[in-house]
């Protein structure tokens, strides 16, 4: 199964880096949001310290929906998903292959956007790089796990893009609270880091297990 996951992941990256459509679109969209937020936030330094983390994760949340739509839609483009299912004989490798692709794209966007965001919003505090790294990684894993699963469900319901945000945004609220709080700590706010990190890990674990139990059912309508 691991081999299949990495072959699907490799195929997706090969397709992505040939055209760069999706990655470029995600980066441009995220930078536009950074620009919009940097123009609209006009609060005291104390308040901004609390708002920065929330806005950054809102940017990643919106941006991830673009990537998610693309990665499974292209499987539907020429019905390649059916051929892939017959070839793999199961859904898990497809799900986790797609998850890795979406995660990679989101992480690449974050590498570009985080420094730009901090510069544009004129962040002058001390940054804890280790916590920032952990925060981005655990948060991205959670967002991508939920998003990949929901997008797969959405495709089967023929709802396409319209339903995705409606299902996606409410489910990721607990994760958004945890990532925003822990990112705030990385940016110098006070708080219980262990609590928020634990919450993120639990959230990620739950959404790793859920697809394993329901993905077959979801995809074989």
């Amino acid at each position: 199964m691991l081999k299949k996951i990495f072959w699907i992941y490799g195929k997706d990256l090969r397709e992505e880096f040939k055209a760069l459509h999706n990655l470029l679109l995600m980066v441009v969209f995220a930078l536009l949001l950074v620009f919009v937020f940097s123009l609209s936030i006009n609060v005291s330094p104390t308040a901004s310290q609390k708002i920065y983390p929330v806005y950054l994760w809102v940017i990643f949340l919106f941006t991830s929906t673009i990537g998610l739509s693309y990665s499974l839609d292209k499987e539907r483009d020429q019905d390649a998903l059916d051929a892939l299912l017959l070839a793999t004989g199961e859904w898990y490798s497809i799900f986790f292959g797609k998850f890795l692709t979406n995660l990679t794209l989101l992480c690449l966007v974050e590498i570009v956007v985080v420094p730009v965001y901090l510069i544009f919003l004129d962040f002058r505090g001390t940054l804890n790089i280790q916590i920032l790294f952990l925060n981005l990684l655990l948060g991205s894993i959670g967002l991508t796990l939920v998003g990949t699963l929901l997008h797969a469900i959405n495709l089967q319901m023929n709802g396409r893009q319209i339903l995705l945000p409606i299902l996606y945004f409410p489910i990721v609220i607990p994760l958004l609270i945890a990532v925003s709080q822990s990112l705030g700590i990385a940016l110098g706010n006070s708080g219980n880091l262990q609590l928020w990190l634990s919450l993120m890990i639990i959230y990620d674990l739950i959404f790793t297990i859920i697809p394993l139990t329901i993905f077959d059912f979801v995809m074989e309508v």
């Binding site: 195929k11 090969r14 397709e15 992505e16 040939k18 055209a19 292209k74 483009d77 020429q78 019905d79 390649a80 059916d82 051929a83 299912l85 017959l86 070839a87 004989g89």
Partner: peptide, 18 residues
């Protein structure tokens, strides 16, 4: 057993980006 099945649909079930 699914791996012993070949299926050609309305659409060719291939990746246009490759």
């Amino acid at each position: 057993l699914s791996r012993q099945i070949g299926y050609l649909g309305h659409r060719p079930m291939i990746y246009t980006g490759l």
